[in-house]
Design a protein around this nucleic acid. Sequence first.
DNA 1: ACCTGAACACCGTTCAAGT
DNA 2: ACCTGAACACCGTTCAAGT
Lengths: 246, 246
Amino acid sequence: MPSFDSVWLRPDRPARDRRLDRDRIVAVAVELLDSGGHGTLSMRRVAAELGVTAGSLYWYVRTKDELLELALDRVLGEIRADLGEPTGLDWRSAVAALARSHRAMLLRHRWVLQELGSRPNLGPNAFALAETGLRLMSRAGFADAELDAALALVNDHVVGAVLAELAWRDALAGPGPAWNEATADYLRKAVSGHPLLAGRMAASTGADPERESERRFTFALDCLLDGLATRVRSLPAHDDRPEPAA
Amino acid sequence: MPSFDSVWLRPDRPARDRRLDRDRIVAVAVELLDSGGHGTLSMRRVAAELGVTAGSLYWYVRTKDELLELALDRVLGEIRADLGEPTGLDWRSAVAALARSHRAMLLRHRWVLQELGSRPNLGPNAFALAETGLRLMSRAGFADAELDAALALVNDHVVGAVLAELAWRDALAGPGPAWNEATADYLRKAVSGHPLLAGRMAASTGADPERESERRFTFALDCLLDGLATRVRSLPAHDDRPEPAA
DNA sequence: ACCTGAACACCGTTCAAGT
DNA sequence: ACCTGAACACCGTTCAAGT
């Protein structure tokens, strides 16, 4: 157990005569991650991109892991926070819009999912995003323990769905140049004992994977919101003042 | 784009006078991953554990990534496949049992989630698991496009929920020795503009995180199954013969 | 205060050479 | 056929020394 000493406890150093700051470093890191995933991110490469030596980064950031933490929070800021304010949308539409914005961000930055599971997320944008979600669920009529359970239901599904989507995206792009005869043979044999799976695979070959993903996401979202809706009517309409502290 | 040349296309070499095989290598890899995550898995370490040099592993496995693929499929085999056979359970209970078994595996092997998103999963246990899930959903009354959408809904939620759970597990263990005053200060300030979040955090301090996770998982599962149930009655009861091929 | 340059202890992977 | 041993091209991180 490392002693609890998060990046968020140590603010950026005040500017003086230097050539670096956290902001520029994080920007380069996000760029590298976007361009080629974790494989293309190294301290040496970030430094090179900034015209500097690797060691100098450690003046601003304690470890590579901290840099990833900062990068994660930065892209979390891309999710629509305006949905927290009253928008005139009914709660289902608002929750769906937040989920779609969340999903879009995860698809833009494919490396983010690897980060989400590895540590608690203590950046300001993470907190702001959570509050936005809680606001929507609160307006929907949830409170107390059900408030975060309802939000988690939607958030967790977005994350899980995009994870699966990313894993299969390239493969489902269909018989590209990489699909040789041996691959087809293996797949045939692998599903031979699995009739339902074979049926689904046959039915989905040739389908546009992007549209397919959209369809599934919409189906899932509808299911989730239906499930939530049955639990909502028991509660009176609820405004978004803070709950009394415990 | 690497040409498509999965591990699953190249069977293990026939046994002769050798000291290694895929099985032993994968077993050691899983052990190392379980004990300390990705950080403790290296080709050199696996080799050392087997009394061998790193280079020799490459006789059985093309890359470290392939080794991870094999390790993933191995632990996928720990999920209850017996639920695919008729059990006498109603479909909700059967789906719930599969989801719980899935979740338990992910919690036992915390490194698995990192693998799930990184590539399509072509191992035999992955296919068998998919067929099991499809069987349950088919018995529930789903067919065609809704068959895999329904399964994905449940699977994706399990994955997303465990991801979030693992991220927060240690932190929510509460004010351990690592929680110094600075951390508390930071958290207070960070949630100060977020009343709903502050309320939830206050309400959850001191709660047993394991029980809390269980509660949320159950809530979510109930929601999902309710959502699915409303879509199921329109279809006649359905046996699990293969669908006609396309 | 900020950055360099060199070093340390690791990696994954390749490949001649041994048996 | 199977494994060794050395090498290559990288890593993250540390730290004296420079400015």
